[in-house]
Nucleic acid binder design. Structure first.
Lengths: 252, 252
DNA sequence: AAGTGGTCTAGACCACCAT
DNA sequence: TGGTGGTCTAGACCACTTA
């Protein structure tokens, strides 16, 4: 088997790409179309090698990258699994607040409002949808140890989350990204965040139980699914009196 | 060659460790003791395999991890190089501020003060030194597009940076971490940061050209060298009027 | 015992770079 | 042209999990 894929076993792949990239794309396709669901095991490396007519080493290299991206999880002796949005994973990869003593805690979410609306121009650009397309706007209050700490304003395209409503959102078990994943097949795999400092106005101050003029951490998030497709905007206001935002590049 | 290293070619390694971990440690040793210097190439994979009496694949796996940690850089056809603290690398991995328009810019540094002092209790713990050990305290003003944006307060142990003084610090070419690396052989390879929101007091406001009471982003950083050894504390205050802090997990 | 991922080897060939 | 890293293969054996 030569390096380039001039007419290989993996169809629909650009020429000149390494074989393992093609294998990675084939596996990703299986994830996108729901062939292998979150929490479940994908076929064994030997089986995939057989399916794709490549060597096990090549399959391993493809899976290596997906594991590095936290899309797949390997468990020796058990198999390779599609990462699911459990509370633990959310806490580790998608929730960056910790107590000033360093402790991590799962936040309790309280739905403040849920409305149907239309995308503003800048939102449409960031979400890759049309200006004026339908969106849901969701406001949540997050508590840590019972105290209000974060106000989250979420914007998601209605076309991706058909028939989502306040009842479904409120009745979910588990995390918000778990709901996206379980009910709508949308798997958030990466987020990008921009942080700045701002001041609490009267209404947000009231929600967070702080005086207006209190400094707050403002976080603008874009959440992405496979192939860097944006699926959610989220703007957070954080009272950093007792908590901090942790930014730490992971080590091996 | 079996998996475990009961009495292998690589001495001084715990039993039961994979061979490639031992190889990785041997390579890291060469980096720590300055055998292979930043910017220079390490021996070829074939040569290392020969030196360590292992297969090329095992050397590659060790290097793979060091490359993933941004400690080494591979360049096809040229060799594998020790990452150096160039302005570009700093901008990409150690400086997280971007303009609100998304543009990255190298900051201009102005030394405000340089004093010899002794470590406070909490600083000593974070730096892994004794309480009261000598440290340098350095205050810098960072400008972006000519405007003051950041105040940096740096604390470093004097024992690691012997004979550092204001003149040496001010006369450096390149980045601060470049100075640590070139003159003291201390290679910062990872940072951890905690962010919160605060208010400008009168003196910091004056330095940043903002009114007291302006919200600022506070960043507490610990910088690490090999083996997770802390070597620098840095506290930053950022005017986020025109700039934001970018937190983005890197993709493959 | 069977099946999974994890490690290690040896070798072939390709792509890229310097000379 | 020679040396470097990059890809791909094939096979052996180990470690771990499950039944």
């Amino acid at each position: 088997m030569t390096r380039a894929l001039e007419s290989g076993p993996v169809a629909g792949i650009p020429f000149g790409q390494p074989l393992y990239k093609a294998v990675k794309l084939r596996i990703t396709r299986g994830l996108v179309d729901g062939q292998w669901r979150p929490g479940a095991a994908i076929p064994s490396e030997a089986r995939l090698a057989q399916m794709f007519q490549v060597s096990v080493g090549t399959v391993r290299k493809a899976i290596d990258e997906l594991v590095a991206e936290k899309i797949l999880l390997r468990q020796q002796g058990r198999g390779t699994f599609v990462a699911a949005h459990t509370a633990d994973r959310t806490l580790f990869y998608f929730f960056h607040l910790v107590g000033k003593d360093g402790r991590k805690e799962t936040p309790a979410t309280e739905l403040l409002s849920f409305v149907r609306a239309r995308a503003e121009a800048d939102e449409a650009v960031k979400l890759g949808i049309g200006r004026g397309d339908r969106v849901y706007r969701i406001r949540n209050l997050l508590r840590l140890s019972g105290e209000p700490v974060v106000i989250d304003d979420i914007v998601i395209p209605a076309q991706l989350f058909v028939d989502l409503d306040e009842r479904v959102f409120g009745a979910r078990e588990g995390t918000i990204y778990g709901l996206y994943q379980a009910r709508y097949g949308i798997n958030v795999i990466r987020i990008a965040e921009r942080l700045s400092a701002t001041l609490a106005d009267r209404s947000t101050g009231a929600l967070l139980g702080v005086a207006s003029g209190t400094p707050l951490l403002a976080i603008a998030r874009i959440a992405y699914t496979y192939h860097d497709r944006p699926v959610e905007l989220r703007h957070s206001l954080v009272d950093t009196t007792e908590h901090e935002y942790l930014s730490d590049l992971v080590k091996t």
